[in-house]
Design a binder for these strands. Structure first.
Lengths: 230, 230
DNA sequence: CAGCCTGGTGTGGTCAGACCACAGAGTCTA
DNA sequence: TAGACTCTGTGGTCTGACCACACCAGGCTG
């Protein structure tokens, strides 16, 4: 088999077998190359891919942050892939929004069944920070995105949470551009804050159906507004 | 900025600007390296990543299949990422199944509103092929997976379809192993065929709620059975 | 003339070896 | 003792080379 693929399969096998765990380090590139009988360039190609997938992080120098470490950032990898395919125009933005609505409405339904989940407290704290009067649009959107991810995380499905975070990454820049074009941003921000609170209230009250309805209206409404001004 | 990241951002920018379209070719590695003022090794690392994301396909030699071509295979890229993170044990299989149930039940609901969608005809044809009596488990599961993806595709959301296909890729090997362990595979196959038909019937009858209930039972039931014997 | 075959050319795949910046650890010096 | 120094190992990048491959054009052969 090809050298590049062999490295990838080797690492995946090590992960599957549990010999390589999150937080541990891969062998140094030069050593890995020697072990597998390939060149360092080939090893690097494979490691780059793992890096792009969010499976591994590399740092130069020495010390704890140096070398190649196994991490677990599925959202990073999925987000990069979604962003690229968004650029190819094969994944329309409207479908990304549709998926987001599906995940969020499903998640708030599930989260309403466990209103004491710590991620809901985190979501509430994010809303408080969004109340700061002198927030610029960039920070506001960042908190906004974190709020929605926290809401999803409260449902307890790691895959959905990762996809949700990935969708946020993929959409991020587009939304920022859109926000610039809105006629009255501060007015929109007031409405978004109100809607966020009403969604969270419904979840904490255990009313999943209401929360789902509200989050659907919230996301689709903002998307429509933002498409109108794009 | 770093050489590697510069190449990646350059290609993404070319895609976003529409100067690079699906089906077209990237410049040759040597030329791209010269154009961007980096080495060929650096260009290759970036291209490997694009390849792993399903954005690009490379072929040696000359002719139409040679060189690096822009493609659009989001499922491939997402599937690889999911498989890797499954290996790190940070994405539990039960969550993958949960996401799958969410997407499928949501999709059959939407598909029921357009019962004449061509993907439904394709799904029906796949079921016919699954009726062949001398089918081995491997082929059966392949058709099974294609059926579920076709069902999802009939809902018309490309992102959901890509994620569904990615989940299939990620789960594929595990399911194959599980099927080996089932006590009476042919008996299970008979049940699966019946359930598939009943799901498709509900969709074609326009009864989205019924289809959603059935597909949820179908997927969760098979997952439980397969976990029990793992 | 028709058919084969044989270089030529350009592609990605891989390799070996080199140099760099970096960051920590250990050592030497004032 | 505190600071400056070298040493070592890391990933990041570059250079230049060779390979297998597949097409294509030209010449050769029948």
């Amino acid at each position: 088999m090809s050298g590049y693929g062999a490295v990838l399969r080797h690492v995946e096998a090590e992960l599957s077998a549990g010999r390589l765990r999150v937080g541990r380090q891969l062998p140094a590139e030069r050593k890995l190359a020697e072990d597998l009988g390939v060149s360092r360039a080939t090893v690097r190609e494979a490691i780059r891919v793992l890096q792009a997938m969010g499976v591994v992080r590399s740092g130069v120098g020495s010390g704890p942050d140096a070398g190649t470490t196994v991490i677990a950032d599925p959202a990073g990898g999925l987000g990069a892939a979604l962003r690229l395919h968004l650029a190819t125009r094969r994944l329309p933005m409207s479908d990304l929004v549709g998926t987001r609505v599906m995940i969020e409405s499903h998640s708030v339904r599930a989260a309403a069944a466990r209103p004491d989940h710590p991620d809901l407290a985190r979501a509430a704290e994010l809303l408080t920070r969004m109340d700061a009067p002198d927030l610029d649009a960039d920070t506001f959107h960042q908190l906004d995105a974190d709020f929605h991810v926290a809401l999803t995380a409260a449902a307890g499905n790691a895959v959905n949470t990762a996809i949700m975070a990935a969708l946020r990454d993929a959409i991020h820049r587009t939304v920022l551009d859109a926000v610039q074009a809105l006629p009255d941003w501060s007015r929109t921000a007031v409405r978004l804050r109100r809607e966020h609170r009403s969604i969270l209230r419904a979840v904490q009250a255990g009313d999943g159906d209401l929360a789902a309805t509200r989050v659907t209206r919230h996301v689709e409404g903002f998307h429509r507004e933002w498409v109108r001004h794009a």
